[in-house]
Design a protein around this nucleic acid. Structure first.
Lengths: 218, 218
DNA sequence: ATATATTTTTAGATATGTCTAAATTTATTT
DNA sequence: AAATAAATTTAGACATATCTAAAAATATAT
């Protein structure tokens, strides 16, 4: 059985691994978890002893098979709970992250599989993020970030890659959600901002927003 | 915000208070929580400082208004989650306790009220235990334990007062569940065991089982 | 390639929650 | 009412997970 802290470190390492390649640095984990680099260093030693990570001093870290399995399982739990919170309890997508951060640590062989069944084995969560399957496979999406879309191309919003209240609430304000149709009108090279068309209205979108919006080309 | 340990102590103190009157002793808490009396003593000091209990050294303890409110809220969460696990996820009533012990500590203003609504505001959990309302009221049942029933009196099983796997599974084996009609045939004074009639079949029930079965007289 | 900056680790402290063993207080018995 | 038993508290230790400050290793720049 793993402690809460251990699970959170594994999750952080997985999360960083998924967005950049190569080994994960102590500092990266430190900022992901909001703990000091010293604490991270301590914990890495413990995780190493438990064979959850492959770690060499000063050389960064990667998950072991066991560690990855465990981390993916936490991600699965997180996303299934988010789905439950939004689809069944009527939360809106910006409110669920904190609660799911707690629910993902509930330990029960049965619970999560029953929840999965109850939700009809969803492949994607309310943010469009893929939900790992029971055996640890992560479904792929065939999407690209909005900022990589080309001019005059039309697509559908399939997901977001940032789970922050301020961001999600801003999207709600812009009337953007999963399934929204979007066309890229213009890219400003100076600040990488975009002009897009949504429901026949022109809309300005900054690069910071665009890079976290996943689009499937129609 | 309260820690997991604090919440568990409050819950234990409430649980003991509900089944016996007067102040709660250190030893009673010790056996309820499975921690040493020394640890209990330590924790009582902390809970006292936080004004969650009224405590005088060597004199036992009772919950303060704040402490009781908090403890009842945990009980509410526990029983709502048990209801969800049984009614929606299809767990059987002997399996849910451990999972609910974890879920009861999830912190969210919104979550439990939404869950309550989702479950249609149930008044009793799958074991027949009353679920405290949002404002902390505990519904009453008008029931008596089976061992206090009189000869030839008929009643309906409304609940159980022991949340232990072995007990609940044994009830399942005896075909006893919430709603089962039961008639008391005979009381053996020597060992306080009972003979009852269920679905026109005679059945032997020990005092240990009978005292945890809540009956409403028809 | 040497100096400087950055990153990472170690050392030492702190808070929480637990334990056992010993001391103290309260309750019970004779 | 004194002796004994039981319950409770204190003292001292330990594990986990964190921190800051200092040391060590690695990376970067001149």
């Amino acid at each position: 059985m793993y402690t809460l802290a251990e699970e959170n470190y594994l999750k952080a390492i997985l999360s960083i691994s998924l967005s950049e390649d190569g080994k994960v640095s102590t500092n990266a984990i430190s900022s992901e978890t909001g703990t000091s680099a010293a604490s991270v260093s301590d914990m890495l030693k413990k995780l190493q002893e438990k064979k959850l990570i492959k770690y060499e001093k000063y050389k960064g870290v990667e998950l072991s098979k066991t560690g990855e399995k465990k981390a993916i399982n936490i991600l699965r739990k997180h996303r299934l709970w988010e789905t439950f919170l939004v689809n069944n309890l009527g939360f809106n997508w910006g409110e669920v992250h904190e609660v799911a951060e707690q629910l993902e640590h509930i330990k029960s062989k049965e619970l999560i599989d029953r929840l999965d069944t109850y939700l009809s084995c969803p492949k994607f969560d309310p943010h469009g993020e893929p939900i790992p399957s029971k055996n640890g496979k992560i479904p792929s999406r065939n999407t690209i970030p909005l900022n990589e879309l080309q001019r005059k191309i039309k697509g559908t919003v399939m997901g977001v890659t940032l789970d922050q209240k301020a961001f999600l609430n801003y999207l709600t304000q812009l009337n953007i959600s999963i399934g929204t149709k979007i066309e890229l009108i213009e890219k400003i090279s100076f600040d990488k901002s975009l002009t897009v068309k949504i429901a026949n209205k022109k809309l300005y979108i900054s690069n910071d927003v665009a890079k976290h919006l996943l689009i499937k080309i129609i």
